[in-house]
Every structure is written in structure tokens, then in C-alpha cells.
């Protein structure tokens, strides 16, 4: 009797380990799919806010998961606004006043360009698996696509989103939905992804929507209109001097 209990416990533990491994495996596969050595994209950001719709266009350059550089092209109000992200740091260049502002402290949690994304969301870099424990919790069908549901629970407490639920397309290893929770269990944000396109052997979603549940009646859509991957980008692009150029 004792022995069977022991074997069962071992089996359960092993099963958990296997599931966890699978969860981590899925997330790793997603990263492999989405993260390129370099990328150049043009995108349209559509912000729905209090029955108003504000559209902004931008061009973004990425290098790995750590560095990115964006320039806003429209509307006139935002034209020439530049963002530079290097690891955990972010700078904004405001052409009106010809000033670079470092985003730090309390500003990190604020809305980026009035969207439902915070600077922190945009800053997120590094491996999720460093901070979270991934567990495959179930499988569901979303928009007629079978998906894994992966639970990511933080290993540290000082983190904005303590828990994340990610729905990953089983076949394409592209996330289709993500829900973000606070430590209290309160759901903070819901993200959906779509319009998955194939680039070589990899897949990339060109549509993303984000809803910040703490704000009322708002929704931000990001539509990538042009995407090129693995091109050579000048190294000085990802330095502060490129902001003022």
C-alpha cells in the first residue's frame, strides 16, 4: 500500500515535470518563431478611446529581443517622435522641444502614446522563462484552431503581471490570445493576435489587439503593414545618438 502511494506520488511529480517541460517547451518554440535577429516593420496603431479613433503610423526596427527603434510617421502631432529601447531602458525623443526623455520609474506603467500598452509592455525583453514558471494547463480550440493553454506564474513578487495565460496555436506555435493578471487575480489586460503570415518556415502574426481593462471603453489595435526579417541594420541605429538625428 505504502509502496503504491509512493509510486503514485513519483508518477504525479514526474507527470507535473513533464507538463512543465512541455509548457516551457511551447513558450520556447513561440520565441523561436517570433524573435528574429533583425526586423523592419511598418505598422498602424489604431487607438479607440472614448468613442474617438486615433490612428498613428510608425516604422520600427528590431534587433533580437532586446533592442528596438521606432519612428512615428503620422499624425502631424506625433510625427518625428522616436522611441529607443535598449534592454531595460527606454528613451523618447520629442522633436517639438528637441529633447530626449528617459522613461523611468512611475512613468513605465503609463500608457504609451495613449494606447492600451504601457511602456513596460513595450519594454518587455529577455526570456519570459527566466521569470515565470510555464505549465501546460489544457488544450482549447480558439477560432477553429486547436491551442495549448499555457499558464505562466511568476517566481518573483515584484512584477506587474503575476500570472499570464497564453493560448498557443498547436500547429503554428504562434500565440493567439494572452490574458494578464495581477497578483490579486484581477485580470488587467487581454491581448489577441491574428492574421498569421508565413515567412520562410516561420509564422508571424500581423494583427494584434490589446485591451487595458483598467481603462474604460478603450482598445488598441496594431496592424503590421510591412514586415521584413533578417536584414542588416546599422549598429549605430540602436544608440541614443540616432534619436536626435
Amino acid at each position: 500500500m505504502k509502496k503504491t502511494l509512493f509510486t503514485l506520488a513519483i508518477a504525479a511529480w514526474l507527470a507535473g515535470a513533464v507538463l512543465a517541460a512541455t509548457g516551457a517547451e511551447i513558450i520556447r518554440k513561440v520565441d523561436e518563431n517570433l524573435i528574429y535577429k533583425s526586423a523592419r516593420m511598418e505598422a498602424k496603431m489604431i487607438i479607440h478611446i472614448w468613442s474617438e479613433v486615433r490612428t498613428k503610423t510608425m516604422r520600427t526596427y528590431q534587433k533580437g529581443r532586446e533592442s528596438s527603434f521606432s519612428v512615428f510617421l503620422s499624425p502631424p502631432r506625433d510625427q518625428g517622435v522616436k522611441y529607443l529601447k535598449l534592454k531595460d531602458n527606454m528613451w523618447i525623443y520629442l522633436p517639438d522641444v528637441d529633447k530626449t526623455i528617459k522613461i523611468a520609474g512611475h512613468m513605465l506603467r503609463q500608457s504609451m502614446m495613449g494606447s492600451d500598452l504601457s511602456y513596460e509592455d513595450a519594454l518587455e525583453s529577455g526570456d519570459l522563462l527566466d521569470k515565470y514558471t510555464a505549465t501546460l494547463v489544457s488544450e482549447e480550440v480558439v477560432k477553429q484552431r486547436p491551442c495549448f493553454v499555457v499558464d505562466l506564474t511568476a517566481r518573483v513578487k515584484e512584477i506587474t503581471y503575476y500570472r499570464r495565460l497564453v493560448w498557443v496555436d498547436k500547429e503554428l506555435f504562434v500565440p493567439v490570445r494572452e490574458e494578464l493578471f495581477a497578483m490579486s487575480g484581477k485580470k488587467l489586460k487581454v491581448m489577441t493576435l491574428g492574421n498569421v503570415q508565413k515567412y520562410g518556415s516561420r509564422y508571424y502574426p500581423l494583427y494584434m489587439s490589446m485591451r487595458n481593462l483598467l481603462r474604460q471603453n478603450t482598445l488598441t489595435e496594431l496592424i503590421i503593414t510591412k514586415a521584413e526579417f533578417d536584414l542588416s541594420l546599422p549598429a549605430e541605429m540602436f544608440t541614443q545618438s540616432s534619436l536626435t538625428k
Partner: peptide
């Protein structure tokens, strides 16, 4: 003086 604040919509904004 450069005044940096947020617009009604939440974007960072500044004016000299």
C-alpha cells in the same frame, strides 16, 4: 523651461 506632461489621451508631450 521644458514642460513635460501627458496629453488628455495619455501620450507624453512637451513644450518649451
Amino acid at each position: 523651461l521644458t514642460v513635460v506632461t501627458q496629453t488628455a489621451y495619455g501620450s507624453i508631450t512637451a513644450m518649451n
